[in-house]
Amino acid sequence: MLGQCYNIKTDKSELLSDVRSRLWFTYRKKFSPIGGTGPSSDAGWGCMLRCGQMILGQALVCRHLGREWRWVPEGEQPAEYHRILHCFLDRKDSCYSIHQMAQMGVGEGKSVGEWYGPNTVAQVLKKLALFDEWNSLAVYVSMDNTVVIEDIKKQCLQADRESRPGRPCTSGESSEQGCSSRPPACPFSQPHAQSPSRWKPLLLVIPLRMGINSINPVYIQALKECFKMPQSCGVLGGKPNLAYYFIGFIGDELIYLDPHNTQPAVDSESGTLVDDLSYHCQRTPHRMKITSLDPSVALGFFCRSEEDFDSWCNLVQQEILKKRNLRMFELVEKHPSHWPPFVPPTKPEVQTTGAEFIESTDQLFESEEEFEILNV
Protein backbone atom coordinates (compact mmCIF):
# COMPACT_ATOMS: atom_id res chain seq x y z
CA MET A 1 0.00 0.00 0.00
CA LEU A 2 1.57 3.26 -1.23
CA GLY A 3 5.03 1.73 -1.01
CA GLN A 4 4.50 -0.01 2.35
CA CYS A 5 4.19 -3.80 2.67
CA TYR A 6 1.99 -5.36 5.36
CA ASN A 7 1.24 -8.91 6.49
CA ILE A 8 -2.54 -8.98 6.73
CA LYS A 9 -2.38 -11.47 9.64
CA THR A 10 0.31 -9.90 11.81
CA ASP A 11 0.25 -6.23 10.75
CA LYS A 12 -3.49 -5.59 10.56
CA SER A 13 -3.53 -2.79 13.17
CA GLU A 14 -0.62 -1.02 11.44
CA LEU A 15 -2.35 -1.40 8.08
CA LEU A 16 -5.63 0.07 9.37
CA SER A 17 -3.74 2.94 11.02
CA ASP A 18 -2.07 3.67 7.69
CA VAL A 19 -5.41 3.67 5.86
CA ARG A 20 -7.00 5.96 8.48
CA SER A 21 -4.11 8.39 8.11
CA ARG A 22 -4.79 9.02 4.41
CA LEU A 23 -6.77 12.18 3.70
CA TRP A 24 -10.31 11.19 2.76
CA PHE A 25 -12.23 13.70 0.67
CA THR A 26 -15.88 12.97 0.02
CA TYR A 27 -19.00 14.60 -1.32
CA ARG A 28 -19.99 17.63 0.76
CA LYS A 29 -23.19 19.64 1.08
CA LYS A 30 -24.17 23.11 2.27
CA PHE A 31 -21.03 24.88 1.11
CA SER A 32 -21.16 28.32 -0.53
CA PRO A 33 -22.53 28.06 -4.09
CA ILE A 34 -19.84 27.50 -6.70
CA GLY A 35 -19.41 30.66 -8.74
CA GLY A 36 -21.92 32.42 -6.50
CA THR A 37 -24.98 30.91 -8.17
CA GLY A 38 -23.92 27.32 -8.82
CA PRO A 39 -24.43 24.11 -6.83
CA SER A 40 -23.86 24.04 -3.06
CA SER A 41 -23.17 20.28 -3.06
CA ASP A 42 -21.09 18.05 -5.32
CA ALA A 43 -23.08 14.88 -4.56
CA GLY A 44 -23.58 12.88 -7.73
CA TRP A 45 -20.91 14.57 -9.85
CA GLY A 46 -17.80 15.43 -7.83
CA CYS A 47 -16.38 11.97 -7.07
CA MET A 48 -13.40 12.18 -9.48
CA LEU A 49 -12.61 15.70 -8.26
CA ARG A 50 -12.57 14.36 -4.69
CA CYS A 51 -10.27 11.53 -5.77
CA GLY A 52 -8.01 14.12 -7.38
CA GLN A 53 -7.94 15.94 -4.05
CA MET A 54 -6.94 12.69 -2.33
CA ILE A 55 -4.02 11.90 -4.63
CA LEU A 56 -2.78 15.48 -4.31
CA GLY A 57 -3.37 15.41 -0.55
CA GLN A 58 -1.20 12.30 -0.31
CA ALA A 59 1.60 14.11 -2.17
CA LEU A 60 1.36 17.08 0.19
CA VAL A 61 1.40 14.84 3.27
CA CYS A 62 4.54 13.13 1.97
CA ARG A 63 6.05 16.52 1.15
CA HIS A 64 5.48 18.12 4.58
CA LEU A 65 4.95 15.27 7.06
CA GLY A 66 6.59 12.23 5.46
CA ARG A 67 5.22 8.83 4.47
CA GLU A 68 5.62 7.50 8.02
CA TRP A 69 3.31 10.13 9.56
CA ARG A 70 0.18 8.75 11.22
CA TRP A 71 -3.04 10.47 12.22
CA VAL A 72 -4.44 9.95 15.73
CA PRO A 73 -8.13 10.84 16.32
CA GLU A 74 -8.44 13.98 18.43
CA GLY A 75 -4.67 14.03 18.83
CA GLU A 76 -2.46 17.07 18.37
CA GLN A 77 -1.16 17.39 14.82
CA PRO A 78 1.65 19.44 13.28
CA ALA A 79 0.81 22.91 11.98
CA GLU A 80 1.63 21.73 8.44
CA TYR A 81 -1.16 19.16 8.66
CA HIS A 82 -3.77 21.87 9.24
CA ARG A 83 -2.24 24.02 6.51
CA ILE A 84 -2.74 21.12 4.11
CA LEU A 85 -6.40 20.70 5.13
CA HIS A 86 -7.01 24.42 4.62
CA CYS A 87 -5.94 24.01 1.00
CA PHE A 88 -8.92 21.67 0.42
CA LEU A 89 -11.72 23.32 2.39
CA ASP A 90 -14.97 23.78 0.44
CA ARG A 91 -14.64 27.51 -0.06
CA LYS A 92 -13.71 29.64 -3.02
CA ASP A 93 -10.47 30.97 -1.52
CA SER A 94 -8.93 27.54 -0.81
CA CYS A 95 -6.47 26.69 -3.57
CA TYR A 96 -7.66 23.09 -4.19
CA SER A 97 -11.31 23.44 -3.16
CA ILE A 98 -14.18 21.92 -5.11
CA HIS A 99 -14.92 25.53 -6.16
CA GLN A 100 -11.50 26.10 -7.71
CA MET A 101 -11.40 22.69 -9.37
CA ALA A 102 -14.90 22.90 -10.86
CA GLN A 103 -14.34 26.40 -12.25
CA MET A 104 -10.90 25.60 -13.61
CA GLY A 105 -12.44 22.60 -15.37
CA VAL A 106 -14.54 24.94 -17.48
CA GLY A 107 -11.39 25.59 -19.50
CA GLU A 108 -11.35 21.88 -20.33
CA GLY A 109 -14.88 22.05 -21.67
CA LYS A 110 -16.44 20.69 -18.48
CA SER A 111 -19.47 22.52 -17.13
CA VAL A 112 -19.75 22.94 -13.37
CA GLY A 113 -21.55 19.81 -12.20
CA GLU A 114 -20.28 17.62 -15.06
CA TRP A 115 -18.45 14.36 -14.36
CA TYR A 116 -14.66 14.30 -14.91
CA GLY A 117 -12.31 11.58 -16.12
CA PRO A 118 -8.88 10.86 -14.56
CA ASN A 119 -6.95 12.82 -17.18
CA THR A 120 -9.13 15.92 -16.87
CA VAL A 121 -8.80 16.14 -13.10
CA ALA A 122 -5.02 15.69 -13.40
CA GLN A 123 -4.82 18.59 -15.83
CA VAL A 124 -6.92 20.77 -13.52
CA LEU A 125 -4.57 20.03 -10.61
CA LYS A 126 -1.61 20.95 -12.81
CA LYS A 127 -3.12 24.35 -13.53
CA LEU A 128 -4.10 25.07 -9.94
CA ALA A 129 -0.65 24.11 -8.64
CA LEU A 130 0.79 27.10 -10.51
CA PHE A 131 -0.98 29.39 -8.03
CA ASP A 132 -0.01 27.45 -4.89
CA GLU A 133 3.09 29.17 -3.56
CA TRP A 134 3.24 27.52 -0.14
CA ASN A 135 3.41 23.90 -1.31
CA SER A 136 5.55 24.87 -4.33
CA LEU A 137 4.76 21.62 -6.14
CA ALA A 138 5.58 20.76 -9.75
CA VAL A 139 2.75 18.75 -11.32
CA TYR A 140 3.71 16.90 -14.50
CA VAL A 141 1.02 15.06 -16.46
CA SER A 142 2.38 12.70 -19.09
CA MET A 143 0.98 12.60 -22.61
CA ASP A 144 0.73 9.78 -25.15
CA ASN A 145 1.57 7.18 -22.48
CA THR A 146 5.10 8.60 -22.36
CA VAL A 147 7.10 10.00 -19.43
CA VAL A 148 9.95 12.25 -20.62
CA ILE A 149 12.81 12.47 -18.12
CA GLU A 150 14.33 15.56 -19.77
CA ASP A 151 11.04 17.50 -19.55
CA ILE A 152 10.44 16.62 -15.91
CA LYS A 153 13.92 17.73 -14.87
CA LYS A 154 13.48 20.92 -16.86
CA GLN A 155 10.25 21.66 -15.01
CA CYS A 156 11.48 20.72 -11.53
CA LEU A 157 14.84 22.48 -11.76
CA GLN A 158 13.72 25.67 -13.46
CA ALA A 159 14.40 29.02 -11.79
CA ASP A 160 10.92 30.20 -10.83
CA ARG A 161 10.88 33.77 -9.67
CA GLU A 162 7.16 33.51 -9.05
CA SER A 163 7.76 31.03 -6.23
CA ARG A 164 10.33 33.10 -4.36
CA PRO A 165 9.06 34.29 -0.97
CA GLY A 166 7.54 37.74 -0.71
CA ARG A 167 6.51 39.81 2.26
CA PRO A 168 3.05 41.41 2.29
CA CYS A 169 2.78 45.12 1.48
CA THR A 170 2.41 47.44 4.45
CA SER A 171 0.34 50.58 4.58
CA GLY A 172 1.46 53.14 2.00
CA GLU A 173 3.80 50.68 0.26
CA SER A 174 3.45 49.54 -3.35
CA SER A 175 4.40 46.26 -4.98
CA GLU A 176 7.18 48.06 -6.89
CA GLN A 177 9.01 48.33 -3.54
CA GLY A 178 9.54 44.59 -3.39
CA CYS A 179 6.49 43.43 -1.47
CA SER A 180 3.59 41.30 -2.67
CA SER A 181 0.04 42.66 -2.92
CA ARG A 182 -1.39 39.21 -3.50
CA PRO A 183 -1.75 36.89 -0.47
CA PRO A 184 -0.56 33.29 -0.75
CA ALA A 185 -3.15 30.89 -2.13
CA CYS A 186 -3.11 28.80 1.06
CA PRO A 187 -3.51 30.25 4.58
CA PHE A 188 -0.81 30.29 7.28
CA SER A 189 1.85 30.52 4.68
CA GLN A 190 4.69 32.20 2.97
CA PRO A 191 6.07 30.34 -0.06
CA HIS A 192 9.24 28.34 0.29
CA ALA A 193 12.40 29.94 -1.07
CA GLN A 194 13.56 28.58 -4.40
CA SER A 195 16.93 28.74 -6.10
CA PRO A 196 17.76 28.01 -9.74
CA SER A 197 19.33 24.65 -8.82
CA ARG A 198 16.78 23.48 -6.26
CA TRP A 199 14.48 20.59 -7.15
CA LYS A 200 10.82 21.47 -6.86
CA PRO A 201 8.97 18.46 -5.34
CA LEU A 202 7.21 16.54 -8.09
CA LEU A 203 3.74 15.05 -8.39
CA LEU A 204 3.93 12.87 -11.50
CA VAL A 205 0.58 11.78 -12.96
CA ILE A 206 0.41 9.24 -15.78
CA PRO A 207 -3.04 8.93 -17.42
CA LEU A 208 -3.45 5.54 -19.12
CA ARG A 209 -5.98 3.51 -21.02
CA MET A 210 -5.27 -0.12 -20.15
CA GLY A 211 -7.79 -1.78 -22.45
CA ILE A 212 -10.93 -1.12 -24.47
CA ASN A 213 -13.97 -1.90 -22.30
CA SER A 214 -12.16 -3.60 -19.42
CA ILE A 215 -8.61 -3.78 -18.12
CA ASN A 216 -6.31 -5.99 -20.18
CA PRO A 217 -5.02 -8.73 -17.81
CA VAL A 218 -1.51 -8.28 -19.19
CA TYR A 219 -1.26 -4.96 -17.28
CA ILE A 220 -2.35 -6.28 -13.86
CA GLN A 221 1.07 -7.26 -12.51
CA ALA A 222 2.61 -3.99 -13.66
CA LEU A 223 -0.18 -2.09 -11.89
CA LYS A 224 0.63 -3.97 -8.69
CA GLU A 225 4.30 -3.07 -9.05
CA CYS A 226 3.35 0.62 -9.09
CA PHE A 227 1.75 0.33 -5.62
CA LYS A 228 4.97 -1.26 -4.30
CA MET A 229 7.13 1.72 -5.27
CA PRO A 230 8.09 4.05 -2.38
CA GLN A 231 7.06 7.00 -4.57
CA SER A 232 3.50 5.69 -5.06
CA CYS A 233 0.72 8.24 -4.49
CA GLY A 234 -2.06 5.88 -5.54
CA VAL A 235 -4.25 5.58 -8.61
CA LEU A 236 -7.29 7.47 -9.87
CA GLY A 237 -9.87 5.23 -11.47
CA GLY A 238 -12.97 3.20 -10.69
CA LYS A 239 -15.94 1.94 -12.60
CA PRO A 240 -18.00 3.78 -15.26
CA ASN A 241 -19.13 7.06 -13.62
CA LEU A 242 -17.94 5.87 -10.19
CA ALA A 243 -14.52 7.21 -9.21
CA TYR A 244 -12.37 5.69 -6.47
CA TYR A 245 -8.94 6.48 -5.03
CA PHE A 246 -6.90 3.27 -5.05
CA ILE A 247 -4.10 3.01 -2.49
CA GLY A 248 -2.93 -0.60 -2.68
CA PHE A 249 -3.79 -4.24 -3.26
CA ILE A 250 -4.29 -7.55 -1.45
CA GLY A 251 -3.94 -10.54 -3.76
CA ASP A 252 -6.10 -9.80 -6.78
CA GLU A 253 -8.15 -7.11 -5.04
CA LEU A 254 -7.53 -3.37 -4.96
CA ILE A 255 -7.87 -1.32 -1.75
CA TYR A 256 -9.59 2.02 -2.21
CA LEU A 257 -11.11 5.03 -0.49
CA ASP A 258 -14.64 5.83 -1.62
CA PRO A 259 -15.71 9.49 -1.99
CA HIS A 260 -19.41 8.58 -2.34
CA ASN A 261 -20.43 9.67 1.14
CA THR A 262 -22.13 13.06 1.50
CA GLN A 263 -21.02 14.96 4.60
CA PRO A 264 -21.73 18.54 5.73
CA ALA A 265 -19.12 21.05 4.62
CA VAL A 266 -16.52 21.98 7.23
CA ASP A 267 -15.97 25.68 7.74
CA SER A 268 -12.80 26.96 9.35
CA GLU A 269 -11.37 30.44 9.48
CA SER A 270 -7.97 31.07 7.95
CA GLY A 271 -5.19 30.27 10.39
CA THR A 272 -7.32 28.10 12.72
CA LEU A 273 -7.32 24.38 13.38
CA VAL A 274 -9.65 22.29 11.22
CA ASP A 275 -12.20 19.88 12.70
CA ASP A 276 -10.64 16.93 10.92
CA LEU A 277 -12.59 13.82 12.02
CA SER A 278 -14.56 13.74 8.76
CA TYR A 279 -11.35 13.86 6.68
CA HIS A 280 -10.22 10.37 7.71
CA CYS A 281 -12.06 7.14 6.89
CA GLN A 282 -12.20 5.09 10.08
CA ARG A 283 -14.10 2.15 8.60
CA THR A 284 -12.57 -1.00 7.14
CA PRO A 285 -11.28 -0.05 3.66
CA HIS A 286 -13.20 -1.09 0.57
CA ARG A 287 -11.88 -3.72 -1.84
CA MET A 288 -12.72 -4.69 -5.41
CA LYS A 289 -11.43 -7.19 -7.96
CA ILE A 290 -8.71 -5.76 -10.19
CA THR A 291 -10.50 -7.23 -13.20
CA SER A 292 -13.50 -4.97 -12.43
CA LEU A 293 -11.39 -1.83 -12.85
CA ASP A 294 -12.33 0.55 -15.66
CA PRO A 295 -9.37 0.71 -18.09
CA SER A 296 -9.10 4.52 -17.89
CA VAL A 297 -6.85 5.36 -14.91
CA ALA A 298 -4.16 7.80 -13.79
CA LEU A 299 -1.11 6.65 -11.83
CA GLY A 300 0.35 9.04 -9.24
CA PHE A 301 3.91 9.27 -7.89
CA PHE A 302 5.59 11.78 -5.57
CA CYS A 303 9.32 12.49 -5.85
CA ARG A 304 10.69 14.77 -3.14
CA SER A 305 14.16 15.11 -4.67
CA GLU A 306 16.00 14.53 -7.93
CA GLU A 307 17.56 11.42 -6.41
CA ASP A 308 14.07 10.18 -5.54
CA PHE A 309 12.98 10.67 -9.15
CA ASP A 310 16.10 8.91 -10.47
CA SER A 311 15.33 5.99 -8.15
CA TRP A 312 11.77 5.87 -9.50
CA CYS A 313 13.10 5.77 -13.07
CA ASN A 314 15.33 2.83 -12.18
CA LEU A 315 12.43 0.96 -10.59
CA VAL A 316 10.29 1.53 -13.68
CA GLN A 317 13.06 0.20 -15.91
CA GLN A 318 13.64 -2.89 -13.79
CA GLU A 319 10.10 -3.80 -12.69
CA ILE A 320 7.84 -2.58 -15.48
CA LEU A 321 9.70 -2.04 -18.76
CA LYS A 322 12.18 -4.94 -18.81
CA LYS A 323 9.74 -7.55 -17.54
CA ARG A 324 6.75 -6.80 -19.77
CA ASN A 325 6.18 -7.45 -23.46
CA LEU A 326 3.25 -5.02 -23.53
CA ARG A 327 4.23 -1.93 -21.55
CA MET A 328 1.86 0.19 -19.48
CA PHE A 329 3.75 3.34 -20.50
CA GLU A 330 7.08 4.43 -21.95
CA LEU A 331 9.92 6.13 -20.10
CA VAL A 332 12.26 8.05 -22.42
CA GLU A 333 15.35 10.14 -21.70
CA LYS A 334 14.94 12.86 -24.35
CA HIS A 335 11.99 14.92 -25.55
CA PRO A 336 10.63 13.27 -28.74
CA SER A 337 11.73 15.27 -31.79
CA HIS A 338 8.29 15.05 -33.44
CA TRP A 339 6.57 16.62 -30.40
CA PRO A 340 6.13 20.37 -29.97
CA PRO A 341 8.85 21.91 -27.76
CA PHE A 342 8.29 21.46 -24.04
CA VAL A 343 7.71 24.72 -22.18
CA PRO A 344 7.35 24.38 -18.39
CA PRO A 345 4.02 25.91 -17.30
CA THR A 346 4.25 29.22 -15.46
CA LYS A 347 1.78 31.34 -13.54
CA PRO A 348 0.27 34.20 -15.56
CA GLU A 349 1.57 37.67 -14.65
CA VAL A 350 -1.67 38.93 -13.10
CA GLN A 351 -2.77 39.51 -9.50
CA THR A 352 -5.72 37.15 -9.18
CA THR A 353 -6.70 33.58 -8.37
CA GLY A 354 -6.25 30.53 -10.53
CA ALA A 355 -9.90 29.95 -11.35
CA GLU A 356 -10.12 33.27 -13.19
CA PHE A 357 -7.50 32.14 -15.72
CA ILE A 358 -9.68 29.60 -17.44
CA GLU A 359 -9.18 31.08 -20.90
CA SER A 360 -5.60 32.31 -20.60
CA THR A 361 -4.18 28.94 -19.51
CA ASP A 362 -6.02 26.67 -21.93
CA GLN A 363 -2.78 26.07 -23.82
CA LEU A 364 -1.25 24.36 -20.78
CA PHE A 365 -2.88 21.04 -21.57
CA GLU A 366 -4.60 19.07 -24.28
CA SER A 367 -8.21 17.97 -24.01
CA GLU A 368 -9.39 14.70 -22.54
CA GLU A 369 -11.03 13.92 -25.86
CA GLU A 370 -7.58 13.79 -27.46
CA PHE A 371 -6.37 11.52 -24.67
CA GLU A 372 -9.26 9.09 -25.01
CA ILE A 373 -8.57 8.29 -28.68
CA LEU A 374 -4.97 7.20 -28.10
CA ASN A 375 -4.13 3.76 -29.41
CA VAL A 376 -4.10 1.12 -26.72
Rank of each mutant, 00 (worst) to 15 (best):
G3Y: 06
Y6K: 01
N7I: 09
K9D: 11
K9P: 00
K9I: 08
S17F: 03
R20G: 00
R20S: 08
S21C: 07
R22Y: 07
R22F: 03
W24C: 04
F25I: 04
Y27N: 06
K30Y: 07
G38H: 03
D42V: 04
C47S: 13
C51D: 01
Q58K: 00
Q58L: 02
A59P: 01
A59F: 02
A59N: 01
A59Q: 01
L65N: 01
R67L: 11
W69F: 14
R70F: 04
V72T: 15
E74W: 15
G75E: 08
Q77F: 13
P78T: 05
H82L: 07
L85K: 01
H86R: 09
C87Q: 10
L89W: 09
D93K: 11
D93Q: 14
Y96N: 05
M104P: 01
G105D: 11
G105A: 10
G107F: 04
K110L: 15
S111P: 04
G117L: 12
V124T: 11
L125V: 13
L128T: 08
E133Y: 02
V139F: 07
Y140W: 03
M143N: 13
D144L: 10
E150S: 15
K153F: 13
K153L: 12
Q155L: 12
D160S: 12
E162K: 13
S171P: 00
G178K: 00
S180D: 14
A185M: 06
C186M: 10
P191V: 08
S195H: 05
W199L: 10
K200A: 09
P201S: 09
I206K: 04
R209P: 04
S214A: 05
N216M: 01
Y219N: 07
Q221E: 14
Q221N: 14
L223Y: 08
C226E: 09
P230F: 11
C233T: 05
Y244C: 09
E253C: 07
N261T: 02
T262E: 10
T262F: 03
P264S: 02
V266E: 00
L273N: 08
V274A: 01
R283V: 02
H286A: 04
R287M: 00
V297Q: 02
F302Y: 14
R304Q: 12
R304M: 09
S305D: 10
S305Y: 11
E306W: 05
E306G: 07
E307G: 14
W312G: 09
N314G: 12
L315D: 15
Q318K: 15
E319G: 06
K322A: 14
N325S: 15
M328S: 14
E330T: 13
L331F: 14
E333G: 02
S337T: 15
H338F: 13
P340A: 13
P341I: 12
F342S: 12
F342L: 11
P344Y: 12
V350W: 14
Q351R: 15
T353V: 12
A355F: 11
I358H: 09
T361W: 09
T361R: 05
T361E: 06
T361A: 00
Q363N: 05
E370Y: 08
L374A: 03
N375I: 00
